[in-house]
Simulated assay, not measured.
Amino acid sequence: MAACIHPTLEQLVRLQFDTRGFSLLPRQPVHSLLSGRHASRLRGRGLIFEELRDYRPGDDIRSIDWRATARLQRAHVRVYSEERERPVLLVVDQRASMFFGSARTTKATAAAELAALAAWRTLAVGDRIGAIIFGDDETVEIRPHRSRANVLHICHELVRMNGRLSATSAPASRATFNHALRCATNLARHDHLIMLVTDYEGDDETTRALATRLAAHNDVLAVLVYDPAGIRFPVGGLMEVTDGRQRSAIPEDGPFAQAFETEFRKRCAQLRERLRALRIPILPICTHDPIPEQVLAALGGRPGV
């Protein structure tokens, strides 16, 4: 996707052709972010009980129902089948803090691209897809459905809310972040995959409590959207900054720049530890690089999988 400040509906729809090669399901390629011991407790689709029947040679002994075996005096196993779907709920940040970018695009647009890509992928594998898209003064809730119309609805709302952002937007509100998470806890009671797509600006104790509730009965993937200039000032002498009225020059190797980087890394370490305690994996997404390439590198396997 070409460089842009605000995404268009056409650009988000075009992402449906970039959905091959990665998976949001629990059976992950060995190098995937979600594989092995680095993964969360991603369960994928749940299991439905089908029948209780006699034990047969080759059955997994772990499926034996010992109470039924004792009662009937012969070995019985419980048979389950995998549910046909696992709903996916996208929680996408479009607050003022996301309207920042030093190359290619902004954090808000990168979040919209990631959400659209995940929505198209979810539809492609036959699962229901919904979204909660939140700004500083508005939250849009789209209930999960398995339809192209629902994905287009999500893309349309992403474009609309992203288009409202500008350099004069009010500072980001943490209240709407927590409100969006409350909406998610009401909508996704259990067995959903919830993707939190945000820069985590303003997360607090309430945020952590709500994330804990979500992770208790659902799979959660934290997508951390960042811009390199939000980590470290660019090299090259002085960096000019402005609040819209006054301009100042900050030395890239001065104490302010060093404190800025130290504070960012401290915040990331704290966030990583909190999410690790909940066994929630983090998918970092950078504004400088194309979103499909980053997702494929983190979650992908062989082409065409």
Rank of each mutant, 00 (worst) to 15 (best):
A149P: 02
T106K: 01
T207A: 01
N178D: 11
A110W: 03
M161Y: 05
R174I: 00
T106M: 09
F100I: 05
A211N: 05
T139A: 12
A180S: 06
I132F: 08
E138Y: 11
H153C: 09
H153R: 15
M195G: 12
T106P: 01
R208K: 10
G163M: 07
P87A: 06
L210H: 07
G101E: 03
A124S: 15
R174D: 00
D203E: 10
K107L: 03
A103M: 09
T106R: 02
K107W: 02
R182F: 03
D136A: 07
A118E: 02
E138P: 07
K107S: 04
L181T: 00
G126V: 14
S166L: 09
A116T: 05
G163E: 04
H190L: 14
S102D: 11
T185I: 03
V197S: 11
I154Y: 06
R213C: 08
L187P: 00
S97I: 04
A112L: 05
A131C: 09
G101R: 01
D203L: 00
H156F: 13
V159M: 09
A216Q: 15
D191Q: 13
R128L: 13
S166T: 14
S147D: 10
P87S: 11
A209G: 07
A108S: 15
A131M: 04
A172T: 04
A110H: 02
M98I: 10
P144G: 10
K107Y: 03
A167S: 14
R213M: 12
R174L: 00
N186E: 13
A115T: 08
E201G: 14
V125F: 13
M195H: 11
R121D: 10
T207P: 00
A111R: 01
G130N: 08
A112W: 04
R95K: 12
D204N: 06
A115P: 10
L158A: 03
I132L: 07
R121N: 13
I132Q: 03
L196V: 15
A188F: 03
Y200H: 12
F100G: 08
E205I: 00
